[in-house]
């Protein structure tokens, strides 16, 4: 059975987007290529970007927009980031990181990410949830 180029997102991602709009915690929704398809209102506040203005953010642009380091400021290998682990290894992951967001603010975040494994054995992407720790 062939799968053709689709305009509509898979129903699993559509439902996750709808779920995320009812969450008070920040949520990212990424597709299998690592593009940031959607982030909810709570995530807008943390990331310093409005979804209606920025829209989809491609994977290549994410690292530039959100500079990520360990809490001590040291570099974190890309493959060790929770969202990357969820996308590439297809397992849940958790991390505590510092990010510098698009609006220039520094934030201390706890991040939990998990893969989205759809019906018919389709790897569809990942969800990341954030908890912000106040920086003293």
């Amino acid at each position: 059975m062939r799968r053709e180029a689709s305009m509509t997102q898979p129903i699993e991602l559509i439902l996750l987007r709808q779920w995320s709009t009812y969450q008070a915690i920040p949520v990212w929704l990424m597709d299998a290529e690592g593009d940031l398809l959607f982030y909810n209102e709570a995530a807008e506040a943390v990331l310093g970007l409005r979804y209606v203005e920025a829209g989809v953010i491609h994977a290549n642009d994410l690292a530039e927009l959100f500079q990520t380091t360990a809490l001590d400021g040291s570099a974190v290998p890309t493959e060790e980031l929770p969202v990357v682990i969820a996308l590439t290894q297809r397992i849940p992951a958790h991390g505590e990181l510092r990010i510098k967001t698009a609006d220039g603010a520094g934030r201390h975040l706890h991040i939990t990410a998990f893969p989205v494994e759809g019906l018919s054995e389709r790897h569809l992407g990942a969800v990341a949830m954030f908890w912000e720790e106040p920086i003293p």
């Binding site: 059975m1 062939r2 799968r3 509509t8 129903i11 699993e12 759809g118 019906l119 018919s120």
Partner: peptide, 23 residues
């Protein structure tokens, strides 16, 4: 049957999961 397309004679059938409880 998984999402995708297949032929039944001259008819092309395209299918995808949609929003309803259960697959």
């Amino acid at each position: 049957t998984d999402p995708g397309s297949f032929e039944l004679g001259p008819v092309t059938v395209t299918t995808d999961y949609v929003c309803h409880p259960g697959a």
